[in-house]
């Protein structure tokens, strides 16, 4: 076990009204996939978070982007990419865009 089993989570965009705080720490005991981690956040924050970030089928919505530190996680890798305790000090960043079409 690393000295800290915490993951720093930063929120950006159209989610601030739900999470209130731009940054939190989440304790994890063992590694999990990005997808599982987002579901875990949804359990923590409740339905409003879930609606904003996940589809009815529990998939991560198209207008959500996730990065680990400076590296964006591809949509195809949500199940594969692992969140590990500590994450070498890198933050888990969740961006929620407002899903707009245009002009």
């Amino acid at each position: 076990m690393t000295e800290t089993a915490r993951v720093v989570v930063k929120f950006f965009g159209f989610i601030m009204d739900v999470v209130k705080k731009p940054e939190i720490e989440v304790e994890i005991k063992e590694e999990c996939s990005v997808m599982e981690f987002v579901h875990r956040l949804a359990d923590m924050f409740g339905d409003r978070f879930r609606e904003r970030v996940l589809t009815d089928c529990g998939e991560i919505r198209d207008h959500v982007r996730i990065s680990i530190g400076k590296e964006m996680v591809d949509k195809e890798d949500y199940e594969k990419r692992l969140i590990k305790p500590g994450m070498n000090g890198e933050a888990f960043k969740l961006f929620v865009f407002s899903s707009q079409m245009g002009g």
């Binding site: 159209f14 609606e51 904003r52 198209d62 207008h63 865009f97 899903s99 079409m101 002009g103």
Partner: peptide, 24 residues
């Protein structure tokens, strides 16, 4: 697409309005 984070297809799932224009 001109506006990022969105595509004309597939059209996203409708949800309870969060946008003032009900576009969602």
């Amino acid at each position: 697409w001109v506006v990022p984070h969105h595509q004309p297809f597939p059209i996203p799932e409708p949800r309870k309005p969060q946008k003032m224009g009900l576009n969602d």
